[in-house]
Simulated assay, not measured.
Amino acid sequence: MKYHCLIFTFLFSCQLFGQANITNQNLYWTRYYNQLSLNSKWTWHNEIDMRRFADNSRLHHLIIHSHLHYKVAPNFDVAAGITYSQQSPQFSDATSTLVVPEIRPFQEINQSQTLGKRVTLSHRFRLDERFIRKNNGTDLLEGSDFNFRFRYRPQLVINLSKSDNKTPVNLKVADELMLNFGGEILYNHFDQNRVYAGFEKVLSKNFSVEMGYLHWFQQRNTGKDFFDRNIVRLTILHKVKL
């Protein structure tokens, strides 16, 4: 709740001076998420995420994550990884074809706890180090802009099936806040907020499929402009044990 209050404070401050400019967009994301268990302590996670505009299927963003997790305790792990992304134009009707690459090392902590037999609450804390290629809006330039970004995501997973069901259906609800700091950040210390709800159907011990809705509210570099996005996300989850 306190994080949503932070967002409302930003919105109210902008609207108070009549400067807020909110752009609504609809997108769909398709994601493949692989978890490779190397042993009881180490797991290697790899993701590829294709994000497209709903109206013309134009590519909005390509994201690739790779991160290695070490289990410190049954309900606690630490991880480090790297992200490579290609940011296409932010509008589906843009005439520009500029694609801006980003390299993003990151570190994270994951902690989970059970709330009864059917509910799990998890917390993810992540620190991004963002190296975004410099550009002038039409061409890439030499060098990169740099800043840190802190991310916090609480998530509830609720088992909706009977206890003896080996292929359960899970309800997932999450809320992630992202804050920028360091580097040359002048206006958008608040980066974005993502609220998500979806259903995961476990198909086997190795595969599951997830479909959900994500509301993405993001502040732009100007400090007074925002994106308000409605997103449908499809995820294929694949777990492999060695």
Rank of each mutant, 00 (worst) to 15 (best):
Phe8Pro: 00
Phe8His: 10
Leu16Phe: 03
Gln19Pro: 00
Tyr28Asn: 15
Trp42Arg: 05
Glu47Ile: 12
Ile48Pro: 01
Met50Phe: 14
Ser57Trp: 05
Ser57Tyr: 10
Arg58Pro: 00
His60Gln: 08
His61Leu: 14
Ile63Met: 15
His65Ile: 08
His69Met: 07
His69Val: 12
Lys71Thr: 02
Val72Pro: 00
Pro74Gly: 07
Asn75Pro: 00
Val78Leu: 11
Ser85Pro: 00
Ser85Met: 15
Pro89Asn: 13
Pro89Tyr: 10
Pro89Met: 14
Phe91Trp: 15
Ser92Trp: 05
Val99Met: 08
Pro101Phe: 11
Arg104Tyr: 06
Phe106Lys: 13
Gln113Ile: 09
Thr114Gly: 02
Leu121Ile: 04
Ser122Asn: 06
Arg126Gln: 13
Leu127Asp: 06
Glu129His: 02
Ile132Gly: 08
Ile132Glu: 12
Lys134Gly: 02
Gly137Thr: 04
Thr138Ile: 05
Asp139Met: 10
Leu140Phe: 04
Asp145Ala: 10
Phe146Glu: 07
Phe148Thr: 01
Phe150Ser: 02
Arg151Tyr: 07
Tyr152Asn: 01
Pro154Phe: 14
Val157Lys: 14
Ile158Leu: 13
Ser163Gln: 04
Asn165Asp: 15
Thr167Tyr: 07
Asn170Val: 08
Ala174Phe: 05
Glu176Leu: 11
Met178Lys: 05
Asn180His: 11
Ile185Tyr: 07
Phe190Val: 01
Phe190Asp: 01
Asp191Phe: 02
Asn193Met: 02
Arg194Gly: 10
Ala197Thr: 11
Phe199Tyr: 10
Glu200Met: 03
Glu200Phe: 03
Ser204Glu: 08
Asn206Trp: 07
Met211Gln: 10
Tyr213Pro: 00
Trp216Val: 08
Trp216Phe: 14
Phe217Tyr: 04
Phe217Leu: 08
Gln219Cys: 06
Ile231Trp: 07
Thr235Trp: 09
Leu237Asn: 14
Leu237Ser: 10
Leu237Thr: 12
His238Thr: 03
Lys239Tyr: 02
Leu242Pro: 00
